[in-house]
Design a protein around this nucleic acid. Structure first.
Length: 254
DNA sequence: ATCCAGGTGTGGG
DNA sequence: CCCACACATGGA
């Protein structure tokens, strides 16, 4: 399959695949719910896959997003975003399972990427995150989640008793409000779940790196104003802008 | 030893 | 609304 994408950038950019997928040489892989294995790799502009359908790949990597159009919108009158796009051309936002995304980003709280991955890997069974009911009942000591364990337990309990997937039918603001009722879900985690789990491209997660970027590149230092600025400048693709900004600021460390 | 990591909950001005 | 602080864990 042919598409504008840089698979390595996409799979290793702090998105859920970084915590949920494995790498074997050039090939990325993970187990699916039915116990089968999905492989993804790229060679000479060609995107290759095995063990899963093309439509699965298209949805997971959001290949139907028109990157050129998105680039045009978010780089307009914006030198910083223009530079980020030149540097990270082909980086895409991924569409992951909402529950797995929620678990991963609760684990991400005040944590670093290598350890988030280790934490999440301890919560897997058959390659997938334990479903809410099982996670709520499981002994998580071995995962060494620290203070996040109680958040995860409470949230698993709550999600087990609600229609979690139905949040994806609400509009962005309503869905975010509902998510933030869960333990361990503040604005940042909610936005990550909405962006990477439910596919709301208007979500703009502000973590320490994005805050640093907004200060250094745009002279903004209040979090609330960062979100307002992002919406004004990059709507409806705040999520893409955020991912390119995140990669840029981590590389440049301004 | 001290600081930091894709923050949140809580308490106080 | 804003800010300070605690919160486990482990690597630098």
């Amino acid at each position: 399959m042919r598409a504008l994408i840089n698979l390595k950038l996409t799979m290793e950019s702090g998105q859920p695949p970084e915590f949920l997928w494995n790498k074997d040489g050039e090939r990325y892989w993970r187990e699916l719910g039915d116990g089968s294995c999905c492989y993804l790799w790229q060679r000479d502009e060609e995107l290759l896959y095995q063990g899963c359908t093309e439509s699965y790949v298209r949805e997971f990597l959001r290949l139907d997003d028109n990157l050129e159009e998105i680039y045009a919108v978010i780089s307009a009158e914006d030198e910083v975003m223009t530079r980020a796009i030149e540097r990270f051309r082909g980086l895409r936002i991924t569409k992951n399972d909402p529950w797995e995304t929620l678990v991963a980003f609760i684990c991400s709280i005040n944590n670093n990427i290598p350890r988030i991955r280790r934490n999440v890997q301890c919560l897997l069974s058959g390659g997938c995150v334990l479903p809410p009911e099982q996670l709520a009942a499981a002994d998580l000591t071995r995962a060494k989640l620290g203070f996040r364990e109680s958040y995860l337990k409470a949230t698993a309990e709550r999600v087990a008793n609600m229609d979690f997937e139905a949040l994806g039918k609400l509009n962005y603001t309503e869905a975010k409000q509902e998510l933030m009722k869960l333990q361990g879900v503040g604005e940042k985690v909610a936005d990550c779940v909405l962006l990477f789990g439910f596919g709301y491209l208007e979500a703009f997660p502000v973590d320490v790196w994005i805050a640093r970027a907004m200060r250094a590149y745009y002279g903004i230092d209040k979090i609330k104003e960062m979100r307002r600025f992002a919406r004004e400048r990059w709507h409806p693709y705040e999520g893409y802008a955020q991912q390119y900004l995140y990669m840029l600021v981590r590389e440049e460390k301004p």
